[in-house]
Simulated scan of single mutants.
Amino acid sequence: MAKIYSQQNDISFGLLRLLFHDCFIKGCDASVFLDDSNGNKNHSVERQATPNKTLRGINEIDMIKEELENACPGVVSCADTLALATRDAVVLAGGPFYPIFTGRRDSTQSYFDEAMDEIPKPNDNITQTLFLFSRRGFDERETVNLLGAHNVGKISCDFIRDRLTDFSGTGQPDASVDPNFLNELRLACQDSSSTDHDGTVASMASREMGNSSSAMIFQGLSSSVPSGARFDNHYYQNLLKGRGLLFVDQQLMADENTARFVAVYASDDGTTFRRDFSRSMVKMSNLGVLTGTLGQVRNKCSFPIRQS
């Protein structure tokens, strides 16, 4: 992971998102990796679900898994590989260390329909978000805490474009966005015609958002934090100012209880957020794990082992 992180320091967010999308659907069982649902070619797999089409980190986990198979064949599951690699990526990004229990096994099937319906969306309101997290056993504080993972990474302008111009079909921008931040985002997400073919974002975006590798992507979750730069509580400080990047983020201020936890996490040097994030990630990484004789240890993460 240290080698991978040295080459792409935004991999931490990619793996956090990959772990979340895996664990949120039927537990941490590496079902999100499958290209083939146990021989059923007519059944769509999780990777094909809309929320999963932009997932990153799968190739990196495949590379790590290949080395593990060379060292100790059939011992370390893809689910364990993802959980351990994500924890190390968080630490490399300056986040907190947390213990990872091992012994997970891999699912033999994938869950396309569940991934389409049950992964929280960027435009979900606070009621929808709390409902989906509560079904996995997370309370309001844990939900606010886990969304703090958005403090690192990069995101496509496509996820927020409607907030800037035509929010919920109103023809107006999202009123919850700070006006100055709205102008910054509009500049950063200018029409692709204003960028060169190689995807260099217009100068303001490069200066304020950090250099980007895609015309439709800017870095960081605040106007001045480049991708992977800090693992701290600036996410919550931005929410208090109306500078939440995604609608689902800013919606944490729309509920009295979640807004209270935002204020708690924003109020110190990040110690409270980091402590709680460690606990939340232990809980997340243990959701619905397969152990014992359940599941299998795949040789390759993309394909289940054929049952004789």
Rank of each mutant, 00 (worst) to 15 (best):
M116T: 11
T165I: 02
R104F: 12
D139A: 10
D162H: 08
I160V: 09
L146A: 10
R163S: 03
G95L: 09
F167Q: 07
S156M: 13
I100Y: 01
F97W: 11
G103A: 05
P122Y: 14
R105L: 10
L164E: 10
D117F: 07
H150T: 04
P120Y: 08
C157V: 03
R135C: 08
F133Q: 00
E140G: 13
D158L: 07
T127F: 11
R141T: 01
S168P: 00
F112S: 14
A149W: 14
G95D: 09
F131S: 12
T127E: 13
E142P: 02
D106T: 01
D166Q: 06
T127W: 08
S156E: 15
H150P: 00
A115F: 02
I100Q: 15
Y111A: 03
R105S: 08
D106N: 12
I155H: 11
I119R: 03
R163T: 01
N145K: 00
D158G: 11
T108E: 06
P122G: 02
E114F: 06
F133K: 04
D158Y: 10
F97D: 14
A149N: 15
I119Y: 02
T102W: 03
E140H: 07
F101W: 02
S134V: 05
K121T: 05
E114K: 03
E114Y: 06
D117N: 15
R161F: 12
M116S: 14
P120D: 08
R161H: 10
G153S: 15
C157S: 01
R104G: 02
T165L: 11
F138N: 07
L132F: 04
E142K: 00
C157K: 01
